[in-house]
Amino acid sequence: MRTRTVQEVRNVLQTQVFATWYKRYCEVRQAIEGAQARRTDLLGQAHMVRYKADLTQQTADDKLFAAGEFEDLAARSHAEYAEIENDSFEVLSEFELQRQKAIDALVDRDRLEKLLEDGRQVASDLRARLDAARKHQTPEGVAEADRLAVRLAEVELQVQAHAKAVEQAAAAEVREARRKEELWLAVEAAWSNSFRANMARTEFSYSSRCVRAESELLFARSVADRRRVEQLEGEAQRALEQMAELDRDYEAILEEGRKTFECTLVNEFLYWPHSEDVKAALCVPLVDESRQFNIQVSALQVYRLERARGLEFIEPARDVSEQASETADNDPRLEAFFAAGPGKAGTVSQ
């Protein structure tokens, strides 16, 4: 590798061969960056979609479990409904028996009241006849009065017995009627529970169908997402293969640059030993870079660097002729400065 002056490097940069090579260099780098960005994007998408598929499947599993729980609830409600229905028939049957008992008690009370009324009527008649017989002081009259008094005493005993029986029959009637009412309330409660259990059964059954349908939909989505993951990973693999191919092209371009321009080329800079300074080198960046060096470097400009420090300290390179013209003692500004009148040289705005 031979040494170069700044001007020689500038001449290289101005050749058509360099322009063509640099165009290919930029194209391949751009293609590599594009492929890299595409692969990163595809892998990112694949990770996202896989995560979504896992989450969707987890949700589908949860929904399937929930559907099973709704089915259990529906089955339990159905069993409860059947049991309540059976119980309600029994309670209704008991109620019917009780209703008959209440009617019987009512009839019995009526019968006993009739007997009591009849007994009282007979007693009243006997009392009237006894009073009339006692008015006759004849022996027949006295005997009749005695007979009637005995009969009246018998009838009054019967009336007392009837009165007690009526009282007991009335109490029995009230008791049987109350029991009948209680049984009717039990019948109504059973019918109400039966209705609730039946409605719950149908709604739980409906919920189970809904949730199971959602679960199946989510499973289908999860499967579709996993197919999409495979597709994205396939595309990412193809992008990787394309990158490998581009890397080979890039390496070939770098090698061609090294040979054609007789320089050291690592990746983004061309380097030549400096003709005029054995400790220095000239370099040409192939990309713009504003932050990583001590100065802002622009692509295809010539820079000077110390071999020992390399890219750690870069200077803009200037030709010997340019430097000579700057150091020549012909700058009129100093003359003007010293020739200026009072106040002019010191004028400054901040």
Binding site: S290, R291, N294, I295, Q296, S298, P316
Partner: peptide, 8 residues
């Protein structure tokens, strides 16, 4: 040259 030497 100063413009090149000033960093942003």
């Amino acid at each position: 040259m100063l413009a090149e030497l000033f960093a942003v």
